[in-house]
Every structure is written in structure tokens, then in C-alpha cells.
Design a protein around this nucleic acid. Structure first.
Length: 428
DNA sequence: TCTGGGGTCCTAGGACCC
DNA sequence: TCTGGGGTCCTAGGACCC
């Protein structure tokens, strides 16, 4: 297989969630900031200042001292804001290349073929435009494969010499950089693969690149073999400027208080199934398979543990709230192991996963389709009311109103809330 | 002395990503 | 006390079939 000479750019926003927060609050600039996950459970984004002493994914309760000592501002996440800023960034990028793949909320691959010698200048202009028009700082990596573009982007972020744009189309520059990048930083090398490779004495991106393909497959799977090829400049991961049909979707939540009665669990399952059906309808999809699961806290191995998961075929395929809720609660009941004596299990997480998704219009015709105009009108009314008056204006009675299962953010003790909000803020 | 072989489909679980 | 949520892809192994 041949090395590619077609340049792919990866443009990645710096500390995206943090940068979004700083757009609207100048007092956050220059101070260490972290953004917390949904439940205020762990740090999912860090400013440069915070990266010095807080690791990605650190649980908040373990870093509370560090937060206090360094005057870190800890913010709950605001996904609506990040989604909107992301859309604006993508809009700007689109004016710089017709061929673009939005890879995640803060990264896009851009096809730079046809720019010749001007590709670096073009990338720099693109970066300036995003900065000027949205306020978000970015870095760009350019290389012949996606994996190398990711690597280039990493170098652009780490080494100020690149001034935000690292071009690895040149073999010598690429080799220089790859000899200095540890394998753990490579896109597709997680902790398990990192450990296996290190055991074989492979520590740098350059060493992994030089691994024989067959050995790559032996140590890992075909995935690692492809990764080695990508590091050699042979593209194995397609450029997807048309987003493929999504295969599944999920609604899962941790419970603020462990769920010890079936009633409470059923309320949570009802809420998640309701939301899952809403998501399906929003995307114009129906699902053919639904999986219900719930489990106790896996971080507490000394307590009674139980994990339940069951998949159900939905026939006909459906996006009706009632179909999903009924099936989900019935399935959940079959796995229930709680007992009223007080020795029951405390379930800390529950969720609904939908698979075999299909556009509503492509649904196979049934010989005897169920006649349910009433259900359809009901869900239409439900969506209309919740659209107009806000989420959860109308819910199934079964979901209940106590929401004892809801996440900590909704059910946090007053003191805890106070402590988070009283974290010191340094004003410039 | 000694239980067929080969194909497909499905699912659970692992690994990885942001 | 307190550890996110939502995705994708791959593989091994069981069920089933002829």
C-alpha cells in the first residue's frame, strides 16, 4: 500500500469547555478552571493552569483539597452553550473548506488537498478566523492520515515553536516529532494497549510506526495493525464528510441516592425510556432493540453487588413513549433482586440503550400493523406541550414527582452546594 | 477405543474515543 | 458521603443449521 500525499488537517479547540466559559466571564481568564461532568462527579475539562495538578477525569471528591489550595474555579457543565459555540466554529470552518468532517464537539477534520504550498498559510488563516469570529483558540495539525493529523495537532498544542499549526507532510519533520511522542498520546492507544506495547519495549510513536504489521495484529487486533499503517502515512480510516446513519442511542444516569425499592427504580427507568423515545422522534427514527440495565456501585466492591441487563425486541419497531416505557419497566421487574427486609441492593445507575435504529420512513411494512392512532396523537401532544412549555412539563404518572432517584445536581444537600459555589475565585 | 466439519448469525464484553 | 454520559468497532464463543 502507498503512502498518501493528500493533506488532512485536524483543527481542535484548546480546552474547549473552559474556553467557552471564558467567552462570557472575563474573570475566568488566567485562573485555573475545571469543568465538571454531568453529576459534578469528575473533571472533564481543565484550563492550562489547572492541568498542572489536576488529571483528566479526576473525581471531584478526591481533588477537593487541590481545588481549595490552588483556588481552582469548578464549574458545572453547560452543554447547551458548548453545543452552540461548536456549531459556530464549524460554520466558520465550512467557509474554509468544502470538505469537512465534524468529528466531535471540539474537533473537525478538513481536507486541504489542492492548496499545495499554501496549506499552512490557509490553516493559519482558518485558525485566525475562528479566533476572531467565535473567540475560541484552536490548534491545527496537518498530515496524510487522520492518526498522523491527530499527532500533528498534539505537537502543535505542546510545542509553541509551531505557532499553533504543525505540518507533518514532510517526512523528516514527521520523524523528528514521532520520536518524541509517547505511545500513550497516540489516537487509538488506550491504557490497555499502552501497557502491552511497553511490555514489548515500544515506547514512542516512531517505534510503533516501525513495528511489523503482522506483529501489530498479534499484539492487538486488526485495529492496531491499521493504526500502525496510519502512522506510516497509509490511510486506513475514511474521511466521512457525510455522517453515517447512527447505530444506537442511550439515556443513562447515575442516581443521586441509591435506589432501594422497585418503585423508585421504575420511576427512573420510566424517565429514561421517556427521554429515549423523545430522542428517537426528534431524529425521525424507530428502534428495533431496547436494552434496559441497572447496577449497584461498581466502585464499592465490599457492598452487595448486582448488575442486570436485558435486551428486548421491539416488534413493531417503535418510537412511542408507551411502548418503550411498558417494555422497559416489565423487563426491569424481571431482574429485580431488592427485598423489603432492608438487605436489598442499592442501585446507583440505570439506563436505556436503543439499537437497530431505522428512519421511520424506512420501517418495514407489517402484515397486520397495530392500529394505534390514539398513541400517535398522544405522543404528538406530549411533544408539542413539552416543546412549548419546557422539558418535563408533562410526564407519565409512573415517572412520579418525588424524583428521589435524580442525580445529585437535582438533589444535592445544601451544604455540598454551598461548598462548591463558595470555592474561591481569583479576580484579575 | 474414543464423539464431523464448516458455515452463519447473534450477543456480551472489551477497548477506545470525546 | 462523594467516581459522567454517549458513542463506535472488534472478537470470542454459543446456538443453530446442513
Amino acid at each position: 500500500m502507498e503512502q498518501s500525499d493528500r493533506p488532512i488537517a485536524l483543527i481542535d479547540c484548546n480546552n474547549f469547555y473552559v474556553s467557552c466559559e471564558r467567552l462570557f466571564d472575563v474573570s475566568l481568564r488566567g485562573v485555573p478552571i475545571i469543568v465538571l461532568s454531568n453529576n459534578d462527579g469528575c473533571a472533564v475539562a481543565r484550563s492550562e493552569e489547572a492541568k498542572q495538578f489536576i488529571k483528566m477525569g479526576d473525581p471531584v471528591f478526591k481533588i477537593r483539597d487541590l481545588i481549595k489550595r490552588h483556588g481552582v474555579v469548578a464549574l458545572s457543565s453547560n452543554y447547551t452553550l458548548y453545543g452552540d459555540v461548536s456549531r459556530r466554529v464549524t460554520e466558520v470552518l465550512h467557509s474554509y473548506s468544502p470538505r469537512l468532517e465534524t468529528y466531535s464537539i471540539d474537533e473537525s477534520f478538513v481536507d486541504l488537498s489542492g492548496f499545495g504550498d499554501r496549506m499552512e498559510a490557509h490553516a493559519a488563516r482558518m485558525r485566525d478566523a475562528v479566533r476572531t469570529e467565535t473567540g475560541i483558540p484552536t490548534c491545527v495539525g496537518i498530515a496524510p492520515t487522520k492518526t498522523l493529523a491527530k499527532l500533528a495537532n498534539y505537537a502543535a498544542k505542546k510545542n509553541p515553536l509551531f505557532s499553533g499549526v504543525c505540518n507533518l507532510m514532510d517526512q523528516d519533520v514527521r520523524d523528528y516529532v514521532m520520536r518524541r511522542i509517547p505511545i500513550g498520546e497516540i489516537w487509538g492507544v488506550g491504557s490497555a494497549t499502552e501497557a502491552k506495547l511497553k511490555a514489548q519495549g515500544i515506547n514512542s510513536a516512531a517505534e510503533l510506526r516501525d513495528l511489523p504489521l503482522a506483529l501489530g495484529r498479534k499484539i492487538g487486533t486488526v485495529v492496531l495493525e491499521r493504526l500502525v499503517a496510519e502512522l506510516r502515512g497509509i490511510p486506513c480510516i475514511d474521511f466521512e464528510d457525510v455522517p453515517p446513519q447512527r447505530k444506537g442511542m442511550a439515556v443513562t444516569r447515575s442516581a443521586g441516592t441509591p435506589m432501594t425499592t422497585f418503585d423508585v427504580l421504575a420511576q427512573a427507568i420510566t424517565a429514561h425510556a421517556t427521554r429515549a423515545a423523545e430522542k428517537l422522534r426528534q431524529h425521525g427514527l424507530v428502534a428495533g432493540t431496547m436494552t434496559v440495565f441497572y447496577h449497584t456501585n461498581p466502585h464499592k466492591p465490599d457492598r452487595p453487588r448486582h448488575s442486570f441487563s436485558r435486551s428486548i425486541r421491539l416488534r413493531p419497531m417503535s418510537n412511542h413513549t408507551f411502548d418503550l416505557v411498558d417494555a422497559a419497566v416489565a423487563a426491569a421487574r424481571r431482574g429485580w433482586k431488592g427485598d423489603p427486609s432492608g438487605n436489598g441492593y442499592g442501585y446507583t445507575k440505570a439506563g436505556i440503550i436503543l439499537d437497530d435504529l431505522l428512519a421511520e420512513a424506512d420501517q418495514p411494512a407489517m402484515l397486520f400493523p397495530p392500529d394505534r392512532p390514539r398513541d400517535a396523537r398522544l405522543t404528538d401532544a406530549l411533544d408539542a406541550i413539552n416543546d412549548r412549555f419546557g422539558k418535563k412539563t408533562m410526564v407519565l404518572a409512573r415517572e412520579g414527582v418525588s424524583r428521589t432517584w435524580a442525580t445529585k445536581a437535582d438533589h444535592r444537600s445544601p451544604r455540598y452546594t454551598t461548598r462548591i459555589s463558595e470555592l474561591p475565585v481569583i479576580q484579575l
